[in-house]
Amino acid sequence: MGNKIIELNNISKDYNVRVLDRISLFVKENEFLTLLGPSGCGKTTTLRIIGGFEYPTEGEILFEGKNINHVPPHKRQINTVFQKYALFPHLNVFENIAFGLRIKKIKEQAIKENVKSMLKLVGLSGFENRNIESLSGGQQQRIAIARALVNKPKVLLLDEPLGALDLKLRKEMQIELKNMQREVGITFVYVTHDQEEALTMSDTVAVMHNGEIQQIGSPVDIYNEPENAFVADFIGESNIIEGIMHDDYIVSFLSKTFKCVDYGFSRNESVHVVLRPEDIVIVEEEAGHLNGIVTSSIFKGVHYEMLIQTEDFEMMVQSTYKSEVGKRVGLSFGPEDIHIMSKEG
């Protein structure tokens, strides 16, 4: 990964209300950046500002160091894969992919070769003369990617491209997309509300909420070291508990004091404590740090998801072993499983 290719500096966007509030982020060459957040968080608007379909109300957007705030989309070296693909129904597969090349007045022979190699890349060789409407969702998806990639953009924007596919196909496409990105060496900016998808595919994840960026970091950092309660809750299931940081490495919550690995908070600062459900181990009663009673136990495929009511908190625990509802159990976790977050975010 090299230089910054796209940079957003304090970008805001107002319609009647403010949908983006001073967003700043940068994308490096060949990076796979994902904008992750619930619907209405401003992630699609951010993508549309990068694509040139919306202009920012405030702030500046740089492409390779140059301001492109008011450059129209057809003059940007950026291509987009739209949410519902937006393939041209009156053109066949070949003409859809060739659309951008024809605008650049490329020779017919070169167009043919380019389209052919793109179809090969997306695994749809021989589909040239097919009608768009005769293709399945997954195939349309691939054509949309081919149509964008054939123009050799410096940056490819993808707006929830896998949203309309079923779970199995979505998983396959995630891996394929990631491989394609490595193969063609193009910067991807990806929008999704699916946290698992974001963690699987990205080099960098930017978590957004209410038009603001909550945290930017690698998937591992985002998952293990969420900066605030929103991120912790949105990235996977979490138990978020009120606590007090007594000193470096010492925190108390649920009326008990624990060792932890976090430091640098003010003395007796009120904090959020995050315990991941998969980090908690169910043990015999009195053998763990906390005691409780199992109130619910649901089979989720790989694991069971159980709710354990302790004295003053309902803890979610994931385990491959089932504990019966009504059983009294103990809960155990280590210092490194306790994540402390400042309440200011």
Binding site: G51, G52, F53, P72, P73, H74, I78, N79, T80, F82, Q83, K84, A86, L87, F88, F99, G100, I103, K104, R147, A148, N151
Partner: peptide
Amino acid sequence: MNKHLAEAALDLGATPSY
């Protein structure tokens, strides 16, 4: 019509009139 069709064309380098 899919409301992103025009945007898709612009995105691929088409001028508005094209």
